[in-house]
Nucleic acid binder design. Structure first.
Length: 541
DNA sequence: CCTCGAGTTGCGAAC
DNA sequence: TGTTCGCAACTCGAG
């Protein structure tokens, strides 16, 4: 077994691309003790964790599968290939270190809690096996640890604060080119029949039962989409998110998010291409501009990297503790687009079908699920989004759910989206609803957003009787949203009182004040910033 | 030319 | 990156 040639492994997790991939380049450029390049083995591990503990729906599995195939194709064109290994990383690597004769292992730095813990473990294992490890930051525009450091060791808790911190840091470097060729020694296809890219069937997908693919995965598609999105410079410069429609029949925004989430597209490439266009004329500004959208991503990544239990309410110091209800029937109705509110249902059905919905559509359904109407926990919604969204991204999913439920960052809980009025602003004829809720296709315009108001004769003529062919609305928005505002107001008062009493006693044992270096990769960091975070939150209201 | 009323637009306040 | 309401100011066609 030790006969295998020395190799440098680039472990792909996110960062599913060849362009602007410093960890990949490090593996390619690696030289052994003889000063020679070694065989390159780009590796992807199908980790059962993502089957058992994460909710991944068919659309995202397919996106992953397509991204892997694209990678394999690109590596094969360079005289290499993609190696796919099944199993838990901590069980897989000890064997690979030896049998693959691994000299170097590189990967892209990941801030997610599961990844952080995993990577510390693998790094230790690698060291025990005399395998060098290199980590590179390339999933975010800025190194989250350096952002924290620049802000006095704690996360900026407002968007504006984050932007000012980013502006104080050195500008992001230009993106790195994809390798166009590999050194001779890096090339070679070993274990030719093993470690193949999984088929749709292996990923548990019946190709026939999932809808046609609207947003195919992979770097090739990502770069195509980037070029298409940035082709109209005027549109790019004028882009303001609030002025794009949540309910257009074709996306009114770029839909680059799935590609950024998987790292098929480098955010740094996006940033630099965008900057070039912005320099050509007057343009919109953050937070609403396209650049502003990139900064939102940085914002949630930075806060998420520094907040314990960021994806939960309990034990999460920045999250308002709210007495959310538990109601399986409501959750089920919401998740499957059967609330009886056509605008809400159309969005949720588009989400399940296509894996992507507009940002403002996410606002509408998230508000509806939580503080607006159903008063269910944002964690319930987070789970459904995690399953169904192609771009489900840990930090942004949790952060945005806290925002929309007024649990953190955003506190104007009396600003409630109307599930009837909101969609009308950009789609007064309800064509979006008719596309995704075809039961209502024959409804007259005046009832399309509120079909329960249609007289029975109209319902019959339209071939869709409410309560029979389409659900009766599960809550009365006009009544329930006022009650919910009152409940949330009470929760805020309780929260404020709790925070005040905890703050004054000041007996919290979490005063470790360890100023660990940002490059430091041991996981036991955190907790020092937590007390200050809850204060800055209080200041906001 | 004026007056009237219906309809619109824009703003601030309250929830 | 809310909705609704009331109010004032305005437009515009009818008479």
């Amino acid at each position: 077994m030790g006969t295998n040639p020395e190799c440098a492994v680039h472990w792909i997790r996110k960062g599913m691309r060849l362009h602007d991939n410093p960890a990949l380049l490090a593996a390619i450029n690696f030289k052994n003790e003889q000063g020679k390049h070694v065989l390159l083995k780009p590796l992807y591990i199908l980790d059962p964790h993502f089957r058992k503990f994460m909710r991944v729906g068919p659309n995202r599995w397919r996106f992953l599968q397509q991204s892997l195939e694209d990678l394999d194709k690109k590596f094969r064109a360079l005289g290499s290939r993609l190696y796919i290994v099944r199993g838990k990383p901590e069980e897989v690597f000890p064997d690979l270190f030896k049998t693959w004769n691994m000299k170097l292992l590189t990967w892209e730095y990941d801030i997610e809690p599961y990844a952080k813990k995993r990577d510390v473990l693998i790094e230790d294992m690698a060291k025990d096996n005399k395998v060098k490890v290199e980590q590179h930051v390339s999933h975010t525009l800025y190194n989250t640890n350096l952002v924290l450091k620049a802000n006095g060791g704690k996360a900026p808790m407002t968007y504006q604060k984050l932007v000012s911190v980013l502006e104080s840091l050195p500008k992001p470097k230009p993106p790195l080119d994809a390798p166009t060729s590999l050194p001779k020694e890096c090339q070679g296809v070993h274990h030719p029949v093993e470690h193949l890219v999984p088929s749709m069937e292996e990923m548990g997908l019946d190709g026939a039962t999932i809808p046609p693919c609207k947003f195919p995965g992979g770097e090739t598609e990502a770069l195509k989409r980037l070029n298409k999105s940035l082709a109209n410079k005027e549109w790019v410069r004028k882009f303001e998110k609030p002025n794009t429609a949540p309910n257009s029949l074709e996306p009114s925004t770029t839909v680059l998010s799935p590609y950024l989430k998987f790292g098929c597209l480098s955010v740094r490439l996006f940033y630099h291409e965008l900057k070039k266009i912005l320099a050509t004329g007057p343009h919109a500004k953050p937070p609403v501009s396209l650049l502003g959208q990139i900064y939102w991503r940085e914002f949630y990544y930075v806060v998420g990297s520094d907040t314990e239990n960021f994806d939960k309410m309990k034990g999460n110091k920045i999250c308002c503790q709210v007495d959310w209800d538990t109601n399986e029937k409501y959750l089920e109705a919401w998740a499957h687009g059967k609330t009886g509110y056509p605008f809400i249902d159309a969005i949720m059905r588009q989400l399940r079908l296509e894996g992507w919905i507009h940002h403002l559509a996410r606002h509408a359904v998230a508000c509806f699920l939580t503080r607006g109407d159903l008063y269910l926990s944002w964690e319930d919604g987070q789970g459904v989004f995690e399953e169904l969204l192609l771009d489900a991204d840990w930090a942004m999913n949790a952060g945005n759910w806290m925002w929309l439920s007024a649990s953190a960052f955003f506190h104007q809980f009396f600003r409630v989206y109307s599930p009837v009025a909101f969609g009308k602003k950009t789609d007064k004829f309800g064509t979006y609803i008719k596309k995704y809720v075809p039961e209502l296709v024959k409804y007259p315009v005046e009832y399309i957003y509120s079909p329960w108001e249609a007289p029975l004769s109209v319902q019959k003529t339209a071939g869709c009787v409410i309560g029979l062919d389409y659900p009766r609305r599960i809550v009365n928005h006009e009544e329930i949203h006022k009650k919910n505002i009152a409940r949330l107001s009470a929760a805020y008062k309780r929260n404020k009182a709790n925070n005040a009493s905890q703050g004054s006693s000041s007996s919290s044992p979490s005063k470790k004040s360890s100023k660990s270096s940002p490059a430091e990769s041991k996981a036991k960091r955190k907790s020092t910033t937590q007390t200050t975070l809850s204060f800055s939150k209080k200041k906001k209201e």
